[in-house]
Design a protein around this nucleic acid. Sequence first.
DNA 1: TCCATAATTCCAAACATATCAAACTATTAA
DNA 2: TTAATAGTTTGATATGTTTGGAATTATGGA
Lengths: 108, 108
Amino acid sequence: MFGIMEKEIAVSALAALAQETRLDVFRLLVRSGPEGLSPGRVAQLLELPPATLSFHLKELRSAGLIICQREGRSRIYRPDFEAVNRLLGFLTESCCQGIPAESRAAAS
Amino acid sequence: MFGIMEKEIAVSALAALAQETRLDVFRLLVRSGPEGLSPGRVAQLLELPPATLSFHLKELRSAGLIICQREGRSRIYRPDFEAVNRLLGFLTESCCQGIPAESRAAAS
DNA sequence: TCCATAATTCCAAACATATCAAACTATTAA
DNA sequence: TTAATAGTTTGATATGTTTGGAATTATGGA
């Protein structure tokens, strides 16, 4: 499953998550599960101005980490879980040689 | 083992890896294993000007991803494997709810 | 001491990102 | 239609990052 990610794609996924607001948005979407959330709801929960949120959603989307779908007058954003898994695969493969994981699986 | 990483620390680790040159440097150090490499050798292998490399090593170091040690007139940089593992733990925990891993373990 | 080597720090230019008000687009309802 | 709602795009400003030459620091020989 989950093929290995290209370095270029990994860099853009890392960059997308390497920003506090964006990481907050992404984690919120992850917590909200496959139902996803509308920008309005995200803006409300994280107290972000719409333009700012829209900018960050676009970044996450062009990094391939989230998916968007129209829903009437609104939209629904959801995490792309496979993309995160590919990123984890990339990091595990290319940044962990020597010391493998164990401990990481099934925490919290 | 490997406790869970603070969000702030995760952001700085992600940012450190979210840059192509820096990711190259880091992966090279990972490949070189626990013996590590001197900046001179890294500069040679990746064809980077010393000032540029030094800047990136400093970034990786302040993100806690690599460790430095003097060795005569030279220095040795090594990855901090536990830090990478903490990052992986953070991502697995906070960005993967709903779909767990399997496939990621022991790839390549 | 004086020179060579190894690397870092300084600095300034070039480039990229983040923020958010205001203008815009798309959809639904009256 | 017109108005209201939900989001996005535009654009200006502010802030931060990357780059690499030149100056600097630190160590080890001759």
